[in-house]
Design a protein around this nucleic acid. Structure first.
Lengths: 301, 301
DNA sequence: CACCGAACCGAAAATATCTTTCATTCGTGA
DNA sequence: TCACGAATGAAAGATATTTTCGGTTCGGTG
């Protein structure tokens, strides 16, 4: 029937625009038109019936309902309710957003401000869109894992390494793989109770999907960290953690915001695992800190 | 007789409660029941259909609609939308401030919120504290450099690689070094017009300082990205870019925020350089994008 | 105390809105 | 170019809302 109220209203403002952006790539053209209309003018759309919105966007009722479903609501009725809530929020809490893209002739100070702002947005969007249930399951799996393999290529490879470094510091066994062949070779060694994590923004990076598939088929718990929750990589993922997708501009490649988003997810995983294994994690962290101390010259001052 | 809290605080929600009280005398018994339910729990009522609300209040649909009319709406549908907006406002009115550190027993949802919030803070701090003059000089040096070497160890090593990957994508020659010996070996090859960048949060990592020193002594333009502007590394740095240092807690090592901070600086450098070398950077970016396209399976959609 | 009228109320019909189905169209890759 | 599958909208079907209308209650009145 009607969706639970908390789910409709519990979401922090702006999460809808984020959701639209995240899901836009997996939408068909006409659905994108609807989603765009909704994101641009929540208040206006809230005043329209399915038929009205369908006419406005030049589509059909069916498409509007499909879009509503994709955005996570049981139907248009609930989307409309959420829209009304959103509109009210926007009304009360005027967002002072910086909207312009970075231009070629922006002074360096503007570049700093805009980049910082956009990355902040990315963080907020990611946090809002993260499925805490899946995250919790992933944390539990990691904490209990015999060993963990992490796959990532390119920019995502660095995120994979970051996660690995962190897990190692709290005494877990983790490896990052960026060589596809070695990754597959290692993946077939995994078994039930082990964890494999694939990090790919597009969700379509074959070199990352293959090892995850191998791990999946050998019974490991598989996790995908991707910006496309409907992409091929999720076929072989027991758990999917969605990163946010912000529009990319010529001077700000998608890699930049996807990295920020991925790192937040990775940090959440790390802290979650550290909480769960606090007894062993705390001393391990302290020990690694100690071990590094002598690598630093005594600072001046 | 205690006055209704909503009215005391003059919140927007108060207007509805006030309206209910004003109009109550002119309402019939069953309409009052409906109005009361609506005033007491807007969010809950927004989730109900006419029939639902009628049952809840032990009345009929007709009565609910009549009440909605009396409250000034064309029908129940519109009252419901207004209710949704009201609920959202009340929701957002609550102070969202997250002040406490992450605790061992925080639920996973709190961990996500707190981490996102802290990283946002870090970004804001970094952007505010960044010296745009030094940044501009660094950008100019990079854009004009024959080659660029970047030094970083551990978590900072990943940042170094990130910068390198980006610079390579726009056609610049850049190398990241995490092996101290190789780094020094390469550093002595640098000469005037080349750029060397050291990334270290503490500013005291000997393995990173040594190569920077070598580069400095051979006449290269040296840049330090560090959280400690008074640390040893700055001795050999022509330019110093300061990252923000936020307090670290047991479950949130300093590495986490310093990484966020460093990445923002690195992104600023990259975008700055891309702006300066736009003529060559834009086609290079497009080319690398094209080259990667075939590595991705055609997505499902 | 019985009767009357008016307002109140809810069941059910009428309407509007939303959802689903299905045939058609469109785009894509072989 | 053809064939296939995905995407789309028209229309049927289901649900929710509004309206209608007759029964009921209540207060007053003869």
């Amino acid at each position: 029937m009607t969706q639970d109220v908390k789910e409709i209203f519990g979401s922090p403002g702006g999460s809808l625009a984020a959701k639209v952006r995240t899901l836009a790539p997996s939408m068909t053209r006409s659905m994108q038109r609807v989603a765009e209309a909704v994101a641009n003018d929540p208040a206006g759309c809230a005043a329209l019936t399915v038929t009205g919105l369908a006419e406005l966007t030049g589509t059909s009722e069916a498409t509007v309902v499909r879009t509503a479903r994709l955005l996570g609501y049981p139907g248009y009725r609930d989307l409309r309710l959420a829209l009304a809530g959103l509109a009210a929020q926007q009304q009360s809490g005027r967002a002072p957003s910086i909207t312009t893209d970075i231009a070629v002739d922006d002074p360096i100070a503007d570049v700093v401000a805009k980049l910082a702002y956009e990355e902040q947005q990315t963080l907020a969007d990611t946090a809002a869109g993260l499925d805490t249930v899946q995250l919790g399951s992933a944390v539990a799996a990691l904490a209990a894992a015999r060993r963990t393999d992490v796959y990532g290529i390119g920019a995502s490879g660095l995120v994979a390494q970051d996660l690995t470094q962190k897990l190692l510091r709290i005494g877990l066994i983790a490896h990052a793989h960026s060589d596809p062949h070695l990754a597959v070779t290692n993946a077939v060694q995994l078994r039930s109770g082990d964890v494999a994590i694939a990090i790919t923004h597009s969700g379509s990076t074959g070199d990352v999907i293959e090892p995850l598939r191998a791990a999946f088929e050998h019974g490991a718990t598989t996790v995908a960290i991707t910006g496309r929750p409907d992409s091929p990589v999720t076929q072989y993922a027991d758990l999917v953690l969605t990163t946010s997708t912000s529009r990319e501009t010529e001077l700000r490649p998608a890699a930049m915001s996807s990295r920020t988003s991925q790192l937040l997810v990775v940090d959440c995983l790390f802290v979650g695992v550290a909480q769960r294994t606090y007894e062993t994690a705390a001393p391990a962290l302290a020990a690694s800190y100690e071990a590094l101390a002598h690598r630093h010259r005594s600072t001046s001052r």
